[in-house]
Nucleic acid binder design. Structure first.
Lengths: 349, 349
DNA sequence: AGGTTTTATTGAATCGTTAAAAATCTAACA
DNA sequence: TGTTAGATTTTTAACGATTCAATAAAACCT
């Protein structure tokens, strides 16, 4: 197809002038400008992005690394990042790591080769080496909930504490005293942060309550397994909080299958407030993490570093807030009270 | 950072040799090769993808256009596309149109500028002009369910008929005779194809049944609205099929809110088999559309055209199959029989 | 040994743009 | 009328690879 040279010839000007018309980077007289514009039309000229990036050293691509787009936590986040990037004229290259650090490395390497303008590492599994490499290549980076901001590295810090504390206070106000927690895989930082927030809040209220922590995989199945461990453990807690909605939903499904009704027999609270939380039966009481905001801020942080290279990245705190729906209810009376879990009814799934 | 020249100097060879080592594109003696490899390490050389694309005219980027990543139909599709692309060394640029044709055009234009190796247009809102432009620029394209394959244009044709027919036969075998349909927005081709498949199957079985078609927006809310129209219509059908799971779920939620129980009072069937279909309460009976396959084939079709440019694209048929879960049950007796819808109980949402 | 192949490597053009420096043109001023 | 400052446009050199034609060296024949 036709290049800038063809356009220049057609318009009877130099390629520099065409470039300036296309990019609005210098004044060009009206007469010449319109001649160039006509030539662009005539040649159906589309600038070649690679040549452009090569010459200017700036690609207008953002790399987005997430763990698993099929996990309902991510789509809204991706959407927000994509929207914010689009508005600023950036394209987003999506990297789905599948929780595989090696794949993440591979992608980051490709990002560097593509000279991406910035990388949003919105995932937990990432390697020190990777980050060093990004730093060495002077690529702006924004993390989710990982360490402090650094040179050209911003951080989105989720305020887990507030939402989780609100959730626990809500449960306490409903009379719950035995609250278990289903955590995520402990090797993921976000899982650790959530668990920590839970423990802190619980410790404050019940300094000597049992720990009651189980672990899942952040997926539905993990929630199911954790719930069946809880069921097997004998004495049922009156409430269960899960580190994410998926596990909460899995737990509810397992409880139901065992004839334990939610919220009558046990209250369940989730975290994230994914789209389906409002639609499940019962609608899930949970903590809202504003994924849209998160995505928007991720891009903003990157843009910030782009306009101030050689500077410290920024630190943004993302608020969370508690949302009451239908999966929590007043605690059932204690085991020796009158109300007990009814006889188990197997519900076919 | 260091370029191929630095590596060449360091290794005492020409840039051509370095290039051949990096790309394995010609034989290089072991001695020279290892010298080059050592130099690459020493310089921490990462090839510049833009220079590469410019020189070779091939970008190893795939453009993926979808309507809305937040619609649970898409994540799995995106994941499959991304995975297949990754395996072949391609990066995926994600374009979320938000059902906006103009935004789609904008993106396609960018794709052309980036000289993408191919575009997967897995969405319904697309403009004739766009497609002409892609054809003119000789970009391989794969469509979802749009027209025939053409020069460098492949088509993934979903076999809606089979799955929908199975669904209807299932309903009929349960004694259902009045089956309504909640269609998608009629301006979307996929919505029309689904509706058509439904009408054909129904016509065949009940040549003179009432049409009973309502329209939604492919989202939960549209399902709710359609359900309330159905409720307002007086005589309730014994079964409702929706053009996608989201609307089926919305309809169930609306029915429940009105005290109409699913599947006792009305059976509901969805389409797509999104991840949450299995998890909803009741678990949704639906038609499975293998999104993973679809994504995989999309990339395969593109690769096919890449290795045979100047040829007709390929046509792939994607099968669908019916899945029974818990949202369908034998038809309740006709309105003048003994069993009637119980008194309406408002359920708080 | 002389000529012909084969093998391994290099030199230089090229891809399509940007951007810094140079050139040209215009109008104003003394 | 010559000089000059300012405005506009052109020239030219990167940017960092790939790739083809050319060359040098080694191997193979009679």
């Amino acid at each position: 197809m036709s290049s800038i040279k063809d356009v220049a010839r057609e318009a009877g000007v130099s390629t520099a002038t065409v470039s300036h018309v296309v990019n609005n980077t210098r004044f060009v007289s009206d007469e010449v400008r319109s001649r160039v514009e006509r030539a662009i039309e005539a040649c159906r000229y589309y600038p070649n992005a690679h040549a452009r990036s090569l010459a200017s050293g700036n690609s207008r691509i953002l790399g987005l690394v997430i763990s698993d787009i099929a996990n309902p936590f991510f789509p809204e986040l991706v959407k927000a990042v994509e929207t914010a990037a689009f508005e600023r004229g950036y394209d987003v290259v999506l990297s789905n790591t599948n929780y595989d650090a090696e794949r993440a490395s591979h992608y980051v390497r490709r990002f560097i080769e593509r000279k991406v303008a910035g990388v949003a590492l919105l995932t937990s599994e990432l390697d020190k080496k990777l980050i060093e490499e990004l730093a060495r290549r002077e690529v702006p980076v924004v993390f989710l909930d990982v360490g402090e901001a650094g040179l050209r590295m911003s951080n989105l810090r989720v305020d887990y504490e507030t939402g989780i504390e609100e959730a626990i206070l809500h449960l306490v106000s409903l009379g719950h005293r035995e609250i278990s927690f289903i955590g995520g895989p402990p090797h993921l930082r976000s899982a650790r942060r959530r668990l920590e927030a839970f423990r802190n809040a619980k410790q404050r209220l019940f300094p000597d309550a049992a720990d009651g922590v189980y672990f899942g995989d952040f997926k539905i199945e993990g929630g199911r397994r954790a719930a069946s461990e809880i069921l097997a453990g004998g004495k049922l807690p009156t409430a269960v909080m899960a580190a994410n909605d998926l596990m909460a939903l899995g737990a509810i499904s397992e409880f139901r299958a065992a004839g334990v009704q939610v919220p009558r027999d046990v209250s369940v609270v989730g975290f994230d407030d994914i789209a389906f939380a409002a639609l499940s039966e019962p609608a899930l009481t949970t903590v809202n993490l504003p994924l849209g905001e998160l995505g928007k801020y991720a891009v903003e942080a990157l843009m910030e570093t782009l306009s101030n290279p050689d500077q410290q990245g920024i630190e943004i705190t993302i608020p969370t807030h508690f949302i009451v729906r239908a999966s929590t209810a007043p605690a059932r009376l204690s085991p020796d009270g009158t109300k007990q879990a009814r006889k188990a009814v197997r519900v076919k799934s």
